[in-house]
Amino acid sequence: MKPSEEKPAIIALPKARRHTYYFLNYADEFKSVYLDTEIDMSEVKRRRDKLKLSGHRISYIVFLIEAISRVIRLYPEANSSVKHGMIPQMAVYHRIAAKFTLDKTMDGRRFVMSGIIPDSDQMPLEGMQKMIEYYRDTEADEITEFANVRKLQSMPLWLGRWIYRLAMGNLSRRAKLQGTFTITSLGHRPIQAFYPIISNTLCFGVGAIEDKPVVMAGQIAIRPMMKLSLAFDHRAIDGALAADILTEVKKVLEFASESDEASTQGEEVTPVGAST
């Protein structure tokens, strides 16, 4: 038999892929719409370099979580989640929790896992950085917070899928499992735009930071630009509100206050359209 005529190897879905499989099946329920904008990251780079000089190494994703969390405080109706069913329900959460994604390895296979930063609108940059480093640097089978995921991956597919949907169907539990917004990045690769699949009302996709020519005050300048996308659940909010949120995140990142070097607890930003 010629190699081209050989039958493919049919195997059970690897355990490392099962959590993603359950997530994607459940994500069909969400009705996503996508927006994007370009952000001048000069101010973030300045803050990052200044903190580095004082001994604090902060990743870009932490600055993004800080900015998004601050903005969501201004738009509490977006800190919500919708449950599909005969009688649809909606939860509006009083606390903000950031879900971030990262690559891990299990049984020699790469897979995507997520960590949760509770009260991300109140946690200092250094605290968020330590949490991300914990998830990043610890082996997947040693992370306590992944214990339930490991159990889910070990179950028969039909049972794991049922349990996943049951857990996500509880709106209170959903926030603990998925956060109240998600940020996911491919910025470590030369990917300019990333439009993620959502599991809550707001999900931000982060592209690479690249030096690009931009026009400023009629002059061409080279700036570190980054594409930030927003996928939002149209069942929960409308496009106008989503556009306001993305615009406000851009504003916070590009015009961060000098007094906000190490904490999200500084003065509030002003919502889009409000008088200053």
Rank of each mutant, 00 (worst) to 15 (best):
A221K: 05
A217H: 06
D233I: 04
D233V: 11
L228A: 06
D211I: 12
M226W: 04
I237H: 03
A208V: 15
P224K: 02
M225F: 01
G207Y: 12
F232V: 04
I220C: 04
I209F: 06
A217I: 00
A208Q: 13
P224C: 07
A221Q: 12
M226D: 02
G207V: 12
D233G: 14
I222F: 07
L228M: 12
V214Y: 00
D233P: 12
M226A: 10
M216F: 10
A208G: 13
K227I: 11
H234E: 08
P213Y: 07
S229F: 06
L228C: 08
D233W: 11
R223L: 02
L228R: 03
M216A: 07
K227N: 15
M216K: 12
M225G: 08
P224Q: 00
A221L: 10
M216D: 13
M216L: 12
K227A: 14
A221F: 11
D238W: 00
D238H: 09
K227Y: 15
A231W: 03
F232W: 05
G207P: 08
A217F: 08
G207D: 12
F232Q: 05
A236P: 03
A208F: 13
V215C: 11
A236S: 09
G207N: 09
K212T: 10
D211K: 15
M216Q: 08
L228V: 14
I209E: 01
A221C: 13
A231N: 05
A208I: 14
V215F: 04
L230R: 03
D233S: 04
D211W: 12
F232A: 07
V214H: 00
M216P: 02
R223M: 01
G207C: 13
F232M: 03
I237E: 02
D233Q: 08
A236T: 07
M226Y: 11
E210R: 15
E210S: 14
M216E: 13
K227H: 14
I237G: 10
H234I: 04
D238K: 03
Q219W: 00
V206S: 07
A208L: 08
L228Q: 02
D238P: 03
M226T: 06
E210L: 15
P213G: 05
V206M: 11
Q219N: 13
D211H: 13
K227L: 11
V214C: 04
L228S: 09
I209G: 05
V206C: 10
K212P: 09
K227D: 15
G218F: 03
G207Q: 02
P224V: 05
A236G: 09
S229R: 04
V215L: 06
Q219H: 09
D238M: 07
A221Y: 09
E210K: 15
M226H: 11
A231C: 10
G218Y: 02
L230Q: 08
I237F: 13
E210H: 14
L228D: 08
M216C: 08
P224S: 00
R235L: 12
V206Q: 11
D238N: 15
R223N: 03
M226C: 12
R223F: 02
M226N: 01
V215P: 10
F232P: 03
G207H: 11
P224H: 01
L228N: 08
I237L: 06
G218M: 01
M225D: 09
A236C: 07
V215G: 01
I220D: 01
F232G: 05
A208T: 15
